[in-house]
């Protein structure tokens, strides 16, 4: 009589002593399952984070806006105060500059710069800057500053909205560049006000 192969005679009952190995297999399977099922969830989280950062799907457009109260005075001792509804103005005659960081999405084209405010006596100006390490050389390269847009209001307008296209097909690179706004109120008084600034972009 041919002796059966040892493993062929292994039945479920006879294999019971091998069951302690099952938890290890189960854990392995569970880990595999979690890895498979959680990967899309992480991707979804990443998508949400992208949306929260203002990223836009291809072919769409968007805007980043900064209200007057979000600007910070360039000089630490600048006296500033609200006028109303998000506006800000300064009261010390020689300190009319305000800066704000601009949280633009990566790889979008900057299309235009819009400025709201009030100017009664002096023009209000706004500039959009980029500070990039692209092309900088040396062991400790300083960021290269570029003025991407520069607009100026009329000198006598109680409330204005001015817009200017950004030339040069500027594509944002948030890995190497930061973007900021500087507004010069021209003078400090309650009639020289910074309202809001908006930057339009497209993907």
């Amino acid at each position: 009589m041919a002796r059966p192969h040892p493993s062929a005679s292994l039945t479920w009952a006879t294999a019971l002593p091998a069951l302690p190995a099952l938890p290890a297999l189960a854990v392995l399977a569970l880990l595999l399952a979690l890895a498979v099922t959680s990967a899309p969830a992480r991707a979804a989280d990443s998508d949400v984070a992208g949306a929260m950062a203002g990223m836009t799907p291809s072919g769409s457009s968007g805007a980043v806006e900064v209200m007057g109260f979000q600007f910070r005075p360039v000089l630490h001792n600048t006296e500033f105060a609200p006028f109303s509804d998000g506006y800000v103005h300064c009261s010390a005659a020689d300190q009319p500059w305000f800066d704000a960081a601009l949280d633009l999405p990566d790889q979008v084209q900057i299309n235009s710069l819009v400025l709201w405010g009030a100017a009664m006596g002096s023009a209000v100006t706004a500039r959009l800057y980029s500070f990039c390490t692209t092309g900088a050389t040396g062991s400790n390269p300083a960021p290269v500053m570029a003025t991407l847009a520069d607009l100026t209001s009329a000198t006598n307008t109680a409330s204005f909205r001015i817009e200017q296209p950004v030339a040069g097909n500027v594509i944002t690179d948030t890995l190497r560049c930061t973007y900021s706004l500087r507004v010069n109120l021209g003078a400090c008084s309650t009639s020289q006000q910074l309202g809001r600034v908006r930057v339009h972009y497209s993907h």
Binding site: A26, A29, L30, L32, A33, L34
Partner: peptide, 9 residues
């Protein structure tokens, strides 16, 4: 068992 765990997960 692994298939069940996958489904459960």
């Amino acid at each position: 068992l692994a298939a069940c765990l996958l489904a459960g997960a």
